[in-house]
Every structure is written in structure tokens, then in C-alpha cells.
């Protein structure tokens, strides 16, 4: 039981990372119907920005840690979305209205380009952040096994839930969110009613990149080690999460993220660590066989 609770906590915090990235995939997919393959690389760049700011401030110990953390968070949330915007501007906007596979190829091209750029600029070796936030609560104990809920995990959950609520509110309540939903339904009609479609799409990328940068920072704090290649696997799994939840659906992305995180945590907790990715992908295949549009996705009706 204790072991189960511990894996549950671990899985939920891991799922938070996937969920935050998956929202970016799902929002972009919803609005322009393309797989933004390079989104995982934005996450990686977010982690690098956070690390640069944290190390640049030179504060990794002492009472100033909360300040450094907030600075790194705000900094990466400001810098990384510029990459999201530039990505859309350079690789996707010129191809609007082209065959869909064309954008997929530019997306793959960018997802090759970006990590290589980071590798050239920062070197191929791993980068580390000394553990900054240690300690936690012991919530239960039994059979010699202590279940801990670390401060970091609490921070991650609070951050994730806050961001998810904030972004849901943005999409439900604000003018920008209305514009996004309008573009999602019918881009031509939205343009006719005075919505700047290009700007709305660019802002969607910026929003997705903001969430991905936070995910990058969480990843950095949680594991303390990053390199230029982390974006690929995490990105694929976040995309899997988005598909699992039903791509285009925001709550679906969160649900899918948490599910993938839990599957991974329980699989590595009870079976083998090596095959945790196999488990995640297999569950995806199983879900898609029985619910071809994901858990919360709307079935798309094909009309002739």
C-alpha cells in the first residue's frame, strides 16, 4: 500500500510534465491541425534557459533559493516563447494552406535543427543543477517503507494545477481564447469576422511554448540533469499523452499526461524500468483501438 502511494505521487508529478507539454501539442493541433513535432525541443530549450538563469544568478544554496527559482521560472517563461514564436514564423507560417505533410516535414526538420543548435552552442555533455529544494513530508509509514511527499513535488503540483486552471480560463473567458476557438472551428469565417488569424495562431504557439518552458524547468528541478537530447523522448511521450486524451481537447491533454505519467511510474515500480516506454505506447495502441479518437476526443464525423 505504501509503495503504491509512493508510485502514485511519483507518477502524478511525472504526469504533470507530460501534461504541460501535451497542452501545447493539443492547442496547436486544434487550431491548425498539425503535429508540432518541434514542441519537445521547445521544452528542452526551456530547461536550458532555466538552468542558465539559475546558474547565472549564482544562487543554489541559502535562503535566496525561492527568489532564484522565481527568477528562473519567469525568465524561462519570457525567453522560451520567443523560440515558439520564431518556430511558427519561420517553419509553419510560410506553409499555411500547403499539403499537411509539408508542415510535418518542416516540423521534423526543426526538431532536428534545434537540438543540434543547442548542442553546438552548449556542448554535447550533460549539464547539472545541484539539488536546490530538498526535504519533504513523511505522510505514511509501514513495513519499513516511508512514503515521502517532497517540497519539490508539492511545488510541481501547485504550479501545474495553477497553470492548467489559468490556461483553461484564458481559453474559456478571454477575447484571445474566443479568437482561438473561432479559428479552430473555421479559419476563413474567423478572418471574415475581423480576427487576426496569423496573430492568433502565433499566440497559440507562444502559449504552448510558455507551458513547455515551465515543464522544462520542472524537469530540471526534478532530475537535476539535462542535455540537448531530452526534448525528443519527452516530446514523443507528451504527444502520446495528447493523443491518448483525445487530441484537440485541453482536459484530454491533462488527463492523458497524468495517465502516461502513472503508467510509467507503476510499470517501472512493479515491473521493469527498461520497458516503461513500451508500456506507455502499448496502452496508447489499446486505447486507440477501442476509442479511435482518444479518451475525451470528439469523434470526427466525415461528410461526403
Amino acid at each position: 500500500m505504501e509503495y503504491f502511494v509512493q508510485q502514485l505521487i511519483n507518477g502524478l508529478t511525472l504526469g504533470a510534465v507530460y501534461g504541460l507539454i501535451a497542452i501545447g501539442y493539443t492547442m496547436v493541433y486544434g487550431i491548425i491541425g498539425m503535429i508540432n513535432f518541434a514542441h519537445g525541443e521547445i521544452f528542452m530549450i526551456g530547461a536550458f534557459h532555466a538552468l542558465i538563469i539559475a546558474l547565472g544568478l549564482g544562487i543554489t544554496t541559502g535562503t535566496w533559493i525561492p527568489v532564484a527559482l522565481v527568477a528562473a521560472l519567469v525568465g524561462t517563461m519570457l525567453l522560451t516563447p520567443i523560440y515558439g514564436w520564431a518556430l511558427e514564423r519561420v517553419a509553419y507560417r510560410p506553409l499555411r494552406g500547403s499539403p499537411r505533410l509539408a508542415t510535418l516535414i518542416t516540423a521534423i526538420g526543426m526538431s532536428i535543427y534545434l537540438p543540434n543548435q543547442v548542442q553546438l552552442l552548449q556542448g554535447a555533455r550533460i549539464k547539472t543543477l545541484p539539488p536546490v529544494l530538498q526535504g519533504g513530508f513523511e505522510i505514511m509509514e509501514g513495513g519499513g517503507f516511508v512514503v515521502t511527499l517532497s517540497y519539490l513535488q508539492i511545488l510541481i503540483m501547485v504550479l501545474t494545477v495553477t497553470l492548467m486552471v489559468a490556461f483553461t480560463l484564458i481559453i474559456e473567458k478571454t477575447a484571445l481564447g474566443r479568437a482561438q476557438r473561432a479559428c479552430e472551428q473555421d479559419r476563413t469565417m474567423a478572418a471574415l469576422s475581423g480576427i487576426n488569424v496569423d496573430r492568433t495562431i502565433a499566440l497559440t504557439f507562444v502559449m504552448g511554448a510558455t507551458l513547455a518552458s515551465v515543464a522544462g524547468m520542472i524537469f530540471l528541478l526534478r532530475y537535476g540533469v539535462i542535455d540537448f537530447f531530452i526534448g525528443f523522448l519527452v516530446g514523443i511521450k507528451a504527444f502520446t499523452a495528447a493523443v491518448l486524451g483525445g487530441i484537440g481537447s485541453l482536459p484530454g491533454a491533462m488527463l492523458g499526461g497524468f495517465l502516461i505519467g502513472l503508467i510509467e511510474a507503476f510499470w517501472s515500480g512493479y515491473f521493469t524500468v527498461e520497458y516503461k516506454d513500451v508500456a506507455a505506447f502499448s496502452i496508447l495502441v489499446l486505447v486507440l483501438i477501442f476509442r479511435p479518437t482518444g479518451l475525451l476526443g470528439k469523434p470526427d464525423i466525415e461528410k461526403v
Partner: peptide
């Protein structure tokens, strides 16, 4: 050398933007 994959990815993007239909 090191720039090979970088140029490879960049070339994929540029060719596609230049000629989206292939």
C-alpha cells in the same frame, strides 16, 4: 562535421518552405 545535422534539419525546412509540394 558538427554542423552536418544542423544543416540537414535546416535544409529540410528551407526546401519545404521554398517548394511545399515537393
Amino acid at each position: 562535421q558538427d554542423f552536418r545535422m544542423l544543416t540537414f534539419g535546416g535544409a529540410m525546412v528551407l526546401i519545404m518552405v521554398w517548394r511545399p509540394a515537393g
